[in-house]
């Protein structure tokens, strides 16, 4: 692999890593606060793409307005899912919510098939995103650069919310202890709703960049990035934001660079990535960057 080709792959990997990373942050936020592996997160991501598609194509929203509309709708969807599918089960064993999230994932996919149709649709890509930037011998897609820049902005925004705002503080307290949070007068329900809104909005933003990169949208499009991000979140240490981002990078690198380096084994990429997941969980259950949790009482 030549240097220029390597650079192209690298930029590609970094931007894909950010996409996975932002979706993974959604898993991490939700897991951190309510200790739920939200299997429906990838499908929320898919719904985001459809919201934007319909806003733009059917209702003729300008592109940016369609994106904002999509982000807001997705955030609302996330809040709604939590209210309907997870909140009533909060007092039951955690496994109930887990099954509920699996069911929700199933429901969203099938809903999309029936309502949006099973065929692929073309996501609108604005002209400025279609460009290819040429630096010497290195050819980089404009989308990759936009993805990286906007993702960094999103991470900064997220850090600001978590560290400097009241609701961010509430989320952090909730993630350590529900009872303490209640004693401190934190509105648990609202904080959880906000967590879902935030996680879903991040999924929506990454859905934009994902759809710009692969502009065919379909009801099962959330599965692949969803499972990638999910693995990223687990490998990074589920519940840890930093871990999710680093995990996302790792997955982005593996996804792009592995087949580029060893084209003959590219078929085994999936098996390898899932094996990584299993190995990390078995030998380092708290992930590479997760906090050590107390073992059995």
């Amino acid at each position: 692999m030549g240097w220029s080709l390597f650079m192209q792959h690298l930029v590609n990997a970094i931007s894909l890593g950010f996409v996975f990373g932002l979706v993974a942050v959604g898993y991490a936020l939700v897991y951190g606060v309510v200790k739920l592996v939200n299997f429906a997160h990838g499908d929320v991501f898919m719904m985001a793409a459809y919201f934007m598609f319909y806003a733009s194509v059917l209702f003729g929203f300008p592109w940016l307005a369609a994106v904002i509309f999509g982000v807001v709708m997705t955030a609302l969807l996330g809040v709604g899912i939590e209210k309907v599918a997870y909140r009533p089960l909060r007092k039951y064993p955690r496994i109930n919510s887990l099954v509920s999230s699996i069911g929700m994932s199933f429901l969203l996919q099938n809903f999309a098939v029936v309502v949006f149709g099973g065929i692929q649709r073309s996501f609108p890509v604005p002209e400025m995103m279609r460009k290819t930037i040429i630096l010497g011998e290195v050819r980089i897609q404009a989308v990759s650069i936009y993805t990286i820049v906007f993702s960094i902005l999103m991470v900064l925004l997220l850090t600001f919310i978590l560290q400097k705002t009241k609701i961010g503080l509430a989320m952090r307290i909730l993630s350590t202890d529900f009872d303490t949070a209640r004693l401190m007068g934190i509105n648990v329900d609202n904080t959880i709703s906000f967590t879902f809104a935030l996680g879903s909005a991040l999924a929506a933003v990454s859905a934009v960049f994902y759809a710009l990169r692969y502009p065919q949208i379909f009801p099962f499009m959330g599965q692949y990035p969803g499972s990638r991000a999910f693995i990223a979140a687990v490998v990074g240490g589920i519940g840890s934001i930093k871990g999710a981002l680093i995990g996302g990078f790792l997955l982005g690198m593996l996804t792009v660079l592995l087949p580029a380096a060893f084209p003959e084994y590219s078929g085994y990429r999936e098996a390898l990535i899932f094996a990584l997941l299993v190995i990390v969980l078995v030998f380092k259950p708290n992930g590479l960057f997760g906090q050590e949790a107390g073992e059995k009482a």
Binding site: V37, R94, G267, Y268, E270, A275, V278, V282, F283
Partner: peptide, 26 residues
Amino acid sequence: PCLRVRGDYLAIVTYGFSEIIRSLFN
């Protein structure tokens, strides 16, 4: 791995296994 991982973590490990099988068979 049941001895080391529990609950939803075990669910993830078994899911991972199932996907590894599918990928290998492909």
